Amino acid sequence: MLTGKQKRFLRSQAHHLNPIFQVGKGGVNENMVKQINDALEARELLKVSVLQNCEEDKSEVAEQLVKGTNAELVQLIGNTIILYKESSNNKQIVLPK
């Protein structure tokens, strides 16, 4: 579980990132969850964009991604979801205490 201080830190780190995944009309599927999980292992922090034509609510999409990848939801702002998951063998981000 992330503290408020850690979430603020991660939000500042994610500010300059571009979304590398988009959730569209098909919604969230197993393949997308697997790819996001692999990307989280490599990067630890990433943005996912929810497109206008997505039939599911963006908070539902965020919940599905968090459950599927066991990641932490840092922020859901507009149509952008910021996810964080500590990498087991490629640790790059040092969280404040």
Rank of each mutant, 00 (worst) to 15 (best):
Q92W: 01
G78R: 08
S88T: 12
K97E: 15
A42M: 14
A42F: 08
A62S: 08
I77S: 14
F9N: 03
F9A: 02
L40M: 02
K58N: 11
K67N: 13
A62C: 05
E56V: 04
S59R: 12
L83Q: 02
N79T: 10
T80Y: 07
V48Y: 05
Q64T: 09
T3H: 06
G4A: 10
I36Q: 07
G78V: 08
V61I: 13
I82Y: 07
I20N: 03
Q52N: 09
S49D: 11
K47E: 05
E44P: 00
T3E: 03
Q13F: 00
Q13I: 07
Q35G: 02
I20E: 11
Q22F: 13
V61C: 05
Q92H: 09
I77M: 12
G27T: 04
D57I: 05
T69Y: 07
T3L: 03
T80F: 04
A71W: 03
V23I: 15
V33M: 12
F9D: 07
I77L: 12
Q75W: 07
L73K: 14
A71L: 06
L83Y: 03
G24Q: 04
I82A: 08
I36H: 06
L46A: 06
K58L: 08
L45H: 03
K85R: 15
K91E: 12
V33P: 05
K85I: 06
R11S: 13
A62R: 09
P19M: 09
T3K: 09
I93R: 00
I36A: 02
S59T: 11
Q64E: 12
I82D: 00
V23L: 10
Q13P: 00
N53G: 01
I77P: 00
T69N: 03
E60I: 13
L65Q: 04
S87I: 01
Q64D: 11
I20K: 11
L40S: 01
D38N: 10
N29Y: 12
Q75I: 06
E30H: 10
S12E: 15
N79E: 11
V33Y: 05
E72K: 10
E56D: 15
S87Q: 05
Q13K: 15
S88Y: 08
I20F: 04
H15P: 00
M32T: 12
V28I: 10
N53R: 12
N79H: 14
V50M: 04
H16C: 09
K91P: 01
Q6I: 02
I81D: 01
F21H: 07
M1P: 10
L2V: 03
A71R: 07
V61Y: 04
